[in-house]
Structures are given as C-alpha cells and as structure tokens.
C-alpha cells in the first residue's frame, strides 16, 4: 500500500503539469476566439446587413425604376455629445419608387464660437434594408467643417434598390453626427 502510494506521489506532479498546460492552451484558445469574434461579426454584418451599416457603393447603370411599388424612407438625426451643432433633415419622410434617385437636404449649423469638424455616421433600420439603401452622394462620405455660426445645406442623393425585400415598406435612415477631435 505504502509503495503504491509513494509511486503515485511521484507521478502525480508530472501528470498534473501536463494537464495544467493543456488547460492553459484552452484559456488561450478562448481568448483568441473572443478577439476573433470582432472580424467574424463584421463579416457576418456586411453579408447580412445585421447592424444597419450602409457601406455599399451605388451602381446606377443597372438600376431600373420599379413604378409599381412605393417605399417610404424616413430620416432622423442625432447630434452626439461634444458637437455643438444643430442638425436636422429638411423633410422627415419621403415616398419613392425603388430605383428612383432622390435628393434630400439636411441642415447643419455650428452654434459654437469656434470651428468644429464633424463626421456623420449612417445607420439603416431595419438592418436587412441596409443592403438595399444606395447612396450616390452624401455629406457622410467625408468630414464636414463649419466655421463659428456657419450654416450649411448638406445634400444626400440616394435610391432604394428595386431588389428590396417585398415585406419591407418603410426604411429609416438615421444619422449620428460625431465631433472629430483633431
């Protein structure tokens, strides 16, 4: 009995060490998986439009206007903390045929006494519709700078792709304007 016990005592630490190392690898794998979820999520989103990001470049040449269908497009705007602007769309909603190119103006005014640079970030709801919302020209494509007290009309030219799923009748486009600290 005693000798069996002695033998176990000697072999124990070694096999413990092996198991500990394996488990540590498991920890590392879990950590890597956690970080890998970031690109995986982005890929998933760009394929499915899950998070409402609109990163599509418009290709006008192939677009046919679908006169038999009407889609309501709504606009909302948010000024994020730290950006001293007024910012709102000139019209809250518009009804368009899929494929029809429209222009909507947003108004921005710097109400502070110093020049401010901002960046608008768009988001489309429902998320699935983001794949079918095509922007031709947008103030969100680059940074916008406003001098103290300056107002600016910011146009958005867009169309809704005719392949928008039939069950979606209303698309909401939301802009959040962030300040760009330089």
């Amino acid at each position: 009995m005693a000798s069996v016990n002695q033998r176990e005592k000697n072999s124990q630490p070694k096999s413990n060490k092996k198991l500990v190392i394996r488990l540590l690898w498991l920890v590392v794998a879990a950590a890597v998986f956690g970080f890998a979820l970031v690109p995986l999520y982005n890929v998933l989103c760009s394929v499915t439009g899950l998070n409402g990001k609109t990163n599509n470049t418009a290709d006008l040449s192939k677009t046919v206007v679908d006169k038999n269908r009407l889609v309501t497009v709504e606009f909302t705007s948010t000024v994020m903390p730290g950006l001293g602007w007024d910012f709102y769309p000139q019209q809250n909603r518009i009804t368009v045929h899929p494929g029809q190119v429209e222009t909507v103006n947003f108004l921005a005014k710097n109400v502070t006494n110093q020049p401010v640079v901002g960046q608008a970030v768009p988001s489309v709801s429902p998320g699935q519709a983001s794949l079918y919302f095509k922007k031709i020209e947008c103030f969100c494509f680059q940074h916008q700078e406003l001098k103290p007290g300056e107002s600016k009309v910011m146009p958005l030219r867009f169309y809704v792709s005719p392949s928008l799923p039939q069950n979606i009748g209303t698309v909401t486009l939301s802009y959040a304007f962030y300040s760009v600290n330089k």
Partner: peptide, 11 residues
C-alpha cells in the same frame, strides 16, 4: 469558466 472568462476579459 475557461471557455467564457477569457472572452469577457477580451471584451
């Protein structure tokens, strides 16, 4: 715990 805590730590 081993599968999920590292993900939280990453987040």
């Amino acid at each position: 715990l081993i599968a999920t805590i590292p993900v939280l730590a990453g987040a």
